[in-house]
Design a protein around this nucleic acid. Structure first.
Length: 559
RNA sequence: UGGGGUAUAGCCAAGUGGUAAGGCACCGGUUUUUGGUAUCGGUAUGCGCAGGUUCGAAUCCUGCUACCCCAGCCA
């Protein structure tokens, strides 16, 4: 873990600190409450960092609680993945993993309590009828004909709902609040609905399941959560959250505080839409390196520290129009890897170079530092032979101005080795450049040539000792900043056809035997990480996490 | 045209009556055997708009405007 600075101030953190200092609370308890219906993404990382970070920072606790009230959408695989993601990010929850379903008995008892108090009733209206009775944004709703039903009858019906006596959609339990409320959430919200589904935690024990609104606040209360942090779209639910706490004999009074969710350009941060990409086979699973999921980013080569740093950079506020520039994310990972990734040379698009003024069996091996600014990384052996490879992109037959890479008659420094000059260009029948014949200036090892400046430095790999590796170049999945901006247009229309390009590359021999999930900087190219699953020490597969900044590309674009 | 929110630079964001932090991006200089890194400097006479209060306003008041969320038996 790299050193982390004091978290930036934000309104939640400020409030918590004031309460702590003022003695309103002795210590805080937060919670991270995902529904296990998909993988966690970068937006969840923001919430995780906020909830766990706040607890950590103040000596409080953060619970891990699955909000598992909808068995139709939830699966055990998601539970496992979510737990692994949170741990990988570097956080530990206090106590056991909790489930809202742990509280189903208590919740049911509280539902009965509300019925007895005349604050809830079983409604026989159909889903369509309920919608009609609810009214609209500008028109009040109409009370259900079952609203004043006898408490005993509701109690009996509720129990029979629980036993599985009725069909799905046949009946619901509703709170009796205010059908004319300007806040639609208060127009007799649904507390329980019938679902004849097997639940991943409770099996077939239940035929009714509580709604989010009836579950969340009370679960918070049961666990002694002091601060229940959620996103802005739940703001309208807060009066309901508080209504339950007020009308039920709950053991504590948690408070809900909302913050703005994270939006990233060129990225989808919606579990539902990410699931579509997976289901449609656009990507290779939830943890495809192009996915903004935590596990996808992990596979891509992001570090936990870089994701935490990103969340800290982004901050926490209530501004809701926010669209964060993905450049912030790439900055976070680059700065981590700049400091911590060992260097290596790897040629992505090999172009053969033959050194003409050395013997056929010429060979020199250099001891090269693993990292230019750190001496704790092992020195690697880098061999130079008569034949070697450079990257095709580093040669131009007719170079534009300011191109200080290789071109006919021009000189260039081979990184960690000599200056060479391109004397001859060999082409195949199709006119493609297939080989360069170059001469070595033997006076330039470890020192600059006399009387002239050689500005270009190229990475290279010995043709004799280099090892073949697979390199996967990943880029944004979408070509537009807001792929899901248009409500009716399909975000599938904005897919980037070049989000994955595979190269058969040649790497320096020190990369042989690299274990999965090892990170490197390929000098002059970018940061790479061996794939967790596809890479083996025998056949390494490198995923590009992010490229190095490319000033030359910028100059060229400008013309 | 109901209710709930939000507006500070291209982007994120601090700031809660005392004269606009910081980061990203961008532009320029220096260093450099990675066109990387590092380092130095530049970038809001201005805080959605218009009034008002005040010695003093991004902060308080009034009135506008724009955008986001809500009519699932999803969370």
């Amino acid at each position: 873990m790299t050193t982390e600075t004091t978290p930036a101030p934000n309104f939640i953190r400020n409030q918590v600190r004031e309460e702590l200092e003022g003695g309103q609370v002795a210590s805080i308890v937060t919670r991270f409450p995902p529904e296990p219906n998909g993988f966690l993404h970068i937006g969840h990382a923001k919430s995780i960092c906020l909830n766990f970070g706040l607890a950590e920072e103040t000596g409080g606790q953060c619970h891990m609680r699955f909000d598992d009230t909808n068995p139709a959408k939830e699966e055990q695989v998601y539970i496992d993945a979510i737990k692994a993601d949170v741990n990988w990010l570097g956080f530990e929850w206090a106590g056991p993993v909790r489930f809202a379903s742990d509280y189903f008995d208590q919740l049911y008892a509280w539902a009965q309590h509300l019925v007895r108090e005349g604050l809830a009733y079983v409604d026989d209206l159909s889903p369509d009828e309920i919608r009609e009775y609810r009214g609209t944004l500008t028109e009040p709703g109409t009370p259900s004909p079952y609203r004043e039903r006898d408490a005993d009858e509701s109690l009996d019906l509720l129990e029979r709902m629980r036993q599985g006596e009725f069909a799905e959609g046949g009946r619901v339990l509703r709170a009796k609040i205010d059908m004319a409320s300007s806040n639609i959430n208060l127009r007799d919200p649904i507390l329980y609905r019938i679902r004849h589904a097997t639940h991943h935690q409770t099996g077939d024990n239940w035929h009714i399941y509580p709604s989010y609104d009836f579950t969340h606040g009370q679960s918070d209360a049961i666990e002694g959560i002091t601060h229940s942090l959620c996103t802005l779209e739940f703001e309208d639910h807060r009066p309901l959250y508080e209504w339950f706490l007020h009308n039920l004999p709950v053991p504590a009074r948690p408070r809900q505080i909302e913050f703005a969710r994270l939006n990233l350009n060129y990225t989808l941060t919606s579990k539902r839409k990410l699931k579509l990409l997976v289901d449609e086979g656009i990507v290779d699973g939830w943890d495809d390196p192009r996915m903004p999921t935590i596990s996808g980013m992990r596979r891509r080569g992001y570090t936990p520290a870089s994701i935490r740093k990103f969340c800290d950079m982004v901050g926490v506020s209530r501004s809701d129009s926010g669209l964060v520039d993905i450049a912030m994310l790439t900055h976070a990972i680059r700065s981590d890897l700049e400091d911590n990734a060992p260097r290596a040379m790897c040629v992505l698009r090999p172009l053969k170079v033959v050194l003409t003024n050395v013997a056929d069996d010429f060979e020199e091996t250099y001891d090269v530092a693993g990292h230019p600014a750190r001496d704790d990384m092992p020195v690697r052996k880098v061999p130079l032979t008569r034949e070697l490879y450079i990257d095709h992109h580093d040669f131009m037959e007719e170079p534009p101005k300011k191109f200080f890479r290789l071109a006919p008659g021009k000189e260039v420094r081979l990184r960690n080795s000599y200056v060479i000059r391109c004397d001859e260009v060999i082409k195949d029948d199709a006119g493609e450049v297939v080989e360069l014949r170059c001469s070595v200036d033997f006076d330039t090892l470890g020192r600059n040539p006399e009387g002239r400046k050689v500005k270009g430095v190229l990475h290279w790999v010995s043709a004799v000792h280099g090892i073949p590796v697979e390199v996967r170049l990943y880029d944004n999945l979408f070509t537009v900043e807001q792929p899901d901006r248009d409500k009716d247009a399909d975000f599938f229309d904005h897919l980037n056809p070049e989000s994955l390009i595979t190269c058969r590359a040649i790497a320096e021999p020190s990369l042989a035997g690299t274990a999965p999930e090892t990170r490197f900087q390929f000098e002059r190219v970018g940061y790479f990480c061996t794939d967790r699953y596809a890479s083996t020490p025998e056949k390494p597969v490198f995923n590009r996490t992010v490229g190095l900044k490319d000033t030359w590309a910028k100059i060229r674009k400008k013309g």
